[in-house]
Measured scan of single mutants.
Amino acid sequence: KAKLLVLLYAFVATDADTICIGYHANNSTDTVDTILEKNVAVTHSVNLLEDSHNGKLCKLKGIAPLQLGKCNITGWLLGNPECDSLLPARSWSYIVETPNSENGACYPGDLIDYEELREQLSSVSSLERFEIFPKESSWPNHTFNGVTVSCSHRGKSSFYRNLLWLTKKGDSYPKLTNSYVNNKGKEVLVLWGVHHPSSSDEQQSLYSNGNAYVSVASSNYNRRFTPEIAARPKVRDQHGRMNYYWTLLEPGDTIIFEATGNLIAPWYAFALSRGFESGIITSNASMHECNTKCQTPQGAINSNLPFQNIHPVTIGECPKYVRSTKLRMVTGLRNIPSIQYRGLFGAIAGFIEGGWTGMIDGWYGYHHQNEQGSGYAADQKSTQNAINGITNKVNSVIEKMNTQFTAVGKEFNNLEKRMENLNKKVDDGFLDIWTYNAELLVLLENERTLDFHDLNVKNLYEKVKSQLKNNAKEIGNGCFEFYHKCDNECMESVRNGTYDYPKYSEESKLNR
């Protein structure tokens, strides 16, 4: 008799109507990190870190770059004969040098303040090359056809396309004075040089004057150069050297050249137009028929994500570079809930034993079982409120962090190594801060989002509990077992918050 009662009780308990509160689960393989956990499985997430590029040089917003090819900045601007293909260059979106560009200054020497000139050019998007001192009329008392084997072109001695090597005419090199007034309405880049012979005999042979000088002056520039005559090792078949100089001439300003020898005179100059998204990159990537809004030396990035880990040097509207390998923000729920887990921000989770793959029309909802059958029903209101809140948060985070910009490298010469090392340390410090901030932001927001979901499920549970009161009992896994019969209409009233407690209280009292 006792065995019969136990079996009867078990049958009745199993047959009781139930309603459970749960949440969506799926077959997603997404994982995120939080402050407290690593690799948390979630139903949905968004990636904030771009880690792919196309490996190509592309047009930037429809404008092609200027590819210097086998030449570098120095060779292009001075007019190395091997860089003749660059003479027609007028406009570009950015400038590309190759790491091993070999054609710079063909006659050995240095372009002074080269690093600063590169910085200036990094904001130039177009130029006009014009004859600042016409070759045939500007130097009537001097020979202007100086050439050298060091600047050979097609097997013949030649010289820079933008400079003139002035030497004596006959047996004399009379003092020369020439000036140019900038009437271009924009900055003009003027380049010139000073020749330093290897011996007094060479000085006399070329310029006749043993104590020659070169003077260059404008409103913002004033220097006097004296040739340094000295024996030097042979470089590119030359014992002599040429140093090259430049200045930016403001609109309306005048530049005056005065010399008694050794002047490498300007022939062509450049009127410059600035462009905020221009820059110089060093890259071996090849040019393709493609378009982008962000270019790196590795390749083009076409992404609206706020961060990238491809390269710190970028041109155009680019994500911020960070050292992170993963920045994924959760938008959905835990896919593998932890039992009795309390989140960092106070939300209680884990009283549900598992997510439901059968509930596909919402994030949170119900599963019921009664004599009429069983089924899932999503709670659309709480789901939609959660979707709206999380979507707004993700968009806000992306908008705040998605300050796209150009980031170019800084140039230092060989004598500025300590400054370069200090600059690298400062840049590394800023990069570490950006990386830390980005990672911390994602970790915190992921923790908040998961706790937010847990709290929403808990609130749904409490909503049902407050309606049923003692007409049902909690069975410990997020479910309630009714003390009365609850048909589909009754189940719907529980879900929509209109459950009639008094209607079922007498039946429940008897069954309790």
Score class of each variant (00 low, 15 high):
residue 1 K to R: 10
residue 3 K to A: 14
residue 5 L to Y: 07
residue 8 L to M: 15
residue 9 Y to C: 14
residue 10 A to K: 05
residue 13 A to E: 14
residue 13 A to S: 12
residue 15 D to T: 09
residue 15 D to K: 15
residue 15 D to V: 12
residue 20 C to S: 08
residue 21 I to L: 15
residue 21 I to Y: 14
residue 23 Y to P: 00
residue 23 Y to E: 08
residue 25 A to G: 00
residue 28 S to V: 07
residue 29 T to P: 09
residue 30 D to K: 12
residue 30 D to R: 02
residue 35 I to Q: 09
residue 35 I to G: 07
residue 40 V to S: 01
residue 42 V to G: 09
residue 46 V to F: 14
residue 48 L to K: 04
residue 54 N to Y: 01
residue 54 N to L: 02
residue 54 N to P: 03
residue 54 N to W: 06
residue 56 K to M: 12
residue 60 L to T: 01
residue 62 G to Y: 05
residue 65 P to C: 09
residue 72 N to M: 13
residue 74 T to H: 06
residue 79 G to P: 06
residue 82 E to D: 12
residue 83 C to I: 01
residue 85 S to H: 13
residue 87 L to M: 15
residue 88 P to L: 15
residue 88 P to K: 11
residue 92 W to E: 03
residue 94 Y to F: 06
residue 97 E to R: 03
residue 98 T to P: 08
residue 103 N to W: 10
residue 104 G to H: 09
residue 105 A to E: 14
residue 107 Y to N: 10
residue 108 P to R: 06
residue 109 G to I: 03
residue 111 L to R: 00
residue 115 E to T: 02
residue 115 E to K: 03
residue 118 R to A: 05
residue 126 S to G: 13
residue 127 L to A: 15
residue 130 F to S: 01
residue 131 E to G: 01
residue 131 E to A: 05
residue 133 F to V: 03
residue 135 K to F: 15
residue 139 W to K: 00
residue 141 N to A: 03
residue 142 H to Q: 11
residue 145 N to L: 03
residue 145 N to F: 13
residue 148 T to C: 07
residue 148 T to F: 00
residue 149 V to A: 15
residue 151 C to A: 03
residue 155 G to S: 13
residue 155 G to Q: 13
residue 156 K to Q: 07
residue 156 K to L: 09
residue 157 S to M: 11
residue 159 F to G: 02
residue 163 L to C: 10
residue 167 T to E: 07
residue 168 K to S: 13
residue 172 S to Y: 13
residue 174 P to R: 13
residue 177 T to Q: 01
residue 180 Y to Q: 02
residue 181 V to W: 15
residue 183 N to C: 00
residue 183 N to G: 09
residue 184 K to T: 02
residue 190 V to K: 00
residue 194 V to W: 10
residue 195 H to M: 03
residue 199 S to E: 07
residue 199 S to I: 08
residue 200 S to W: 01
residue 202 E to Q: 07
residue 206 L to E: 08
residue 214 V to H: 04
residue 214 V to Y: 05
residue 215 S to A: 14
residue 216 V to M: 12
residue 219 S to G: 10
residue 221 Y to M: 14
residue 227 P to G: 11
residue 227 P to W: 03
residue 228 E to A: 12
residue 229 I to E: 02
residue 230 A to F: 13
residue 232 R to D: 11
residue 234 K to E: 05
residue 236 R to K: 06
residue 239 H to T: 13
residue 243 N to G: 07
residue 243 N to L: 11
residue 248 L to D: 00
residue 248 L to F: 08
residue 249 L to Y: 00
residue 252 G to F: 08
residue 256 I to Q: 12
residue 257 F to L: 15
residue 258 E to Q: 06
residue 260 T to D: 00
residue 260 T to P: 00
residue 262 N to R: 01
residue 263 L to W: 15
residue 265 A to Q: 10
residue 266 P to D: 05
residue 269 A to C: 03
residue 270 F to E: 12
residue 271 A to F: 03
residue 273 S to V: 15
residue 277 E to K: 09
